[in-house]
Amino acid sequence: MGQVEVNMETTPQSSDRSGSSEEAGCSFMLEAVGWYGTGAIVLAYLLLSLGLLDSNGLPYQALNLSGALGIILISFKKKAYQPAVLNVVWAVIALLAIGKAVL
Rank of each mutant, 00 (worst) to 15 (best):
L73T: 04
S15F: 06
T11V: 15
I41Q: 15
G25L: 08
L48D: 10
N7Y: 12
T38E: 03
A91W: 07
A91N: 10
L65P: 02
A101W: 02
V42K: 14
L46H: 12
P83H: 03
G25I: 03
P59E: 05
L30W: 01
I71T: 14
I98M: 15
V92W: 08
L58I: 15
G39T: 05
A91Y: 09
G2R: 09
Q61E: 07
I93W: 08
S15I: 12
L103K: 12
M29V: 12
K78L: 09
E5N: 15
V33W: 04
L52F: 10
G25S: 12
L103M: 14
P12N: 07
A84G: 15
V42Y: 04
M29H: 06
G19D: 00
V42G: 04
L47R: 10
L52I: 09
A44E: 07
E22W: 00
I98A: 11
A40H: 02
I98T: 11
K78P: 03
G25F: 01
N56E: 01
L63C: 02
D16L: 04
V92K: 12
S18W: 01
I72W: 06
V33K: 01
I71P: 01
V102Q: 11
T38V: 14
T11I: 15
L96T: 10
Q82A: 13
Q13T: 14
S66R: 09
S14Q: 12
I72C: 10
A84V: 04
G99I: 14
L95S: 15
A101S: 15
E22H: 06
I98S: 09
L52K: 01
L48G: 05
S14D: 10
L48C: 03
L43D: 04
L48R: 09
G37M: 02
V88L: 13
